Deep mutational scan, measured.
Amino acid sequence: MRVFPVYAPKLIVKHARIFLTGVIWVKDLGRLEFEKGRFLLPRKSLPKVKQAILELNELIEAQN
């Protein structure tokens, strides 16, 4: 598990694309899981977490 002390979308996306499957922890967002290079949306999450995951997945799609 990698810990990101700040929310840096480009760096987080780079990590997810390299490792494809895993878990990261982002300060103020908490634990985020990714599989096959995409972030998974938890069943229950705060609106800011949901927005961050959608933003990260959009960045991943834009890079493909």
Rank of each mutant, 00 (worst) to 15 (best):
residue 34 F to S: 00
residue 16 A to M: 06
residue 27 K to T: 15
residue 31 R to L: 07
residue 8 A to Q: 09
residue 17 R to I: 11
residue 2 R to S: 07
residue 42 P to Q: 06
residue 3 V to P: 06
residue 54 L to Y: 11
residue 63 Q to C: 06
residue 34 F to T: 01
residue 5 P to D: 15
residue 47 P to T: 12
residue 60 I to K: 03
residue 18 I to K: 15
residue 7 Y to F: 08
residue 18 I to A: 10
residue 15 H to F: 06
residue 61 E to I: 11
residue 23 V to G: 04
residue 7 Y to D: 02
residue 26 V to H: 01
residue 28 D to C: 05
residue 27 K to Q: 14
residue 59 L to G: 04
residue 19 F to K: 11
residue 63 Q to K: 05
residue 62 A to R: 11
residue 19 F to E: 15
residue 37 G to Y: 04
residue 4 F to C: 03
residue 19 F to S: 12
residue 6 V to Q: 09
residue 43 R to Y: 07
residue 25 W to H: 06
residue 43 R to K: 14
residue 9 P to S: 04
residue 44 K to F: 08
residue 13 V to K: 02
residue 3 V to K: 11
residue 50 K to P: 03
residue 16 A to D: 00
residue 61 E to H: 10
residue 41 L to K: 10
residue 36 K to D: 12
residue 61 E to K: 11
residue 21 T to G: 07
residue 64 N to G: 12
residue 45 S to L: 12
residue 60 I to M: 14
residue 54 L to N: 08
residue 23 V to D: 07
residue 16 A to G: 02
residue 5 P to R: 14
residue 30 G to E: 02
residue 58 E to I: 12
residue 23 V to C: 06
residue 36 K to T: 10
residue 63 Q to M: 13
residue 58 E to G: 14
residue 29 L to Q: 01
residue 32 L to C: 03
residue 15 H to A: 04
residue 51 Q to K: 15
residue 28 D to S: 14
residue 43 R to V: 10
residue 49 V to T: 06
residue 30 G to P: 00
residue 46 L to F: 12
residue 5 P to L: 14
residue 37 G to W: 02
residue 47 P to G: 09
residue 48 K to L: 08
residue 24 I to W: 00
residue 40 L to R: 11
residue 63 Q to E: 14
residue 36 K to P: 04
residue 14 K to A: 14
residue 54 L to H: 13
residue 6 V to W: 13
residue 20 L to N: 13
residue 42 P to M: 07
residue 51 Q to V: 07
residue 57 N to G: 02
residue 48 K to F: 08
residue 13 V to P: 00
residue 28 D to Q: 14
residue 33 E to Q: 15
residue 10 K to V: 12
residue 53 I to C: 06
residue 56 L to M: 08
residue 56 L to G: 03
residue 59 L to Q: 06
residue 36 K to F: 14
residue 62 A to N: 11
residue 33 E to A: 13
residue 30 G to K: 02
residue 42 P to N: 11
residue 56 L to T: 00
residue 21 T to C: 07
